[in-house]
């Protein structure tokens, strides 16, 4: 029990750098949820996410000596977690990464495809069902990786635009553009899904 005593205090970076075991354990305790969540959302597979989780902390513990305090430990870990996830994806399905490199769609094309169905009025339980949750995870998984990473950090983890830019080594403008696209695509996907649900609910 004594190990828990000061987990509420901020991390002592100097102690981390000297490899203090208690401080390293505290880092894991504080940030393993967020790293696991990112890996899970990036990969949508618990066992792959666990691999990435472990790799992320192994890398972090190795690299902590060189940690530059320009960003927070949290942002730094997000960065490693996203990079590890991308590396994992590249190893698993190299073809998926090739698709990422293709030129972006022309914006008009994106926007002319907008579906307009007001599904907000569905009963709240519709959004909480396990089927609905599984669909959402799949929809997030279907976002191109470069949109997905932005979306995960900003909308799931709640980082600011600036922090997201820092973690992903992007400009803030770039983050905003990708975020808009990710959100609109996801909205599109959910509109398709809940639009069908609306028709079904009516008939139930």
């Amino acid at each position: 029990m004594s190990e828990e005593q000061n987990f509420d205090e901020p991390l002592n970076i100097e102690a981390l750098k000297t490899g203090d075991r208690h401080e390293l354990a505290k880092m894991v305790e504080l940030y393993s949820d967020q790293v696991y969540r990112v890996a899970l959302k990036m990969l949508n597979n618990p066992s792959d996410a666990e691999d990435v989780l472990q790799e992320t902390f192994i890398k972090a513990m190795r690299a902590i000596k060189n940690f530059q305090e320009r960003s927070t430990i949290s942002t730094w870990l997000y960065r490693i977690a996203v990079n590890e996830s991308l590396m994992f994806l590249r190893k698993q399905k190299p073809e998926a990464v090739v698709i990422e490199e293709e030129p972006q769609n022309n914006e008009d094309q994106d926007y002319s495809a907008i579906q307009v169905v007001d599904w907000c009025c569905l009963p709240e339980k519709e959004f909480l069902s396990s089927e609905s949750r599984a669909h959402l995870n799949e929809a997030i998984q279907n976002l191109p990786a470069k949109f997905r990473s932005v979306f995960i950090l900003r909308d799931i983890e709640g980082l600011s635009i600036r922090e997201t830019a820092e973690a992903l080594n992007l400009t803030e403008t770039n983050v905003k553009t990708r975020l808009l696209r990710a959100r609109m695509r996801l909205r599109e996907d959910l509109t398709q899904y809940y639009g069908e649900r609306m028709a079904e609910v009516k008939n139930e």
Partner: peptide, 18 residues
Amino acid sequence: TLKKTIDIVQEQKTQDKI
């Protein structure tokens, strides 16, 4: 629906603990 999309995502977040 865009707002709702983001809301749904954020509601789920709390359920994702290691």
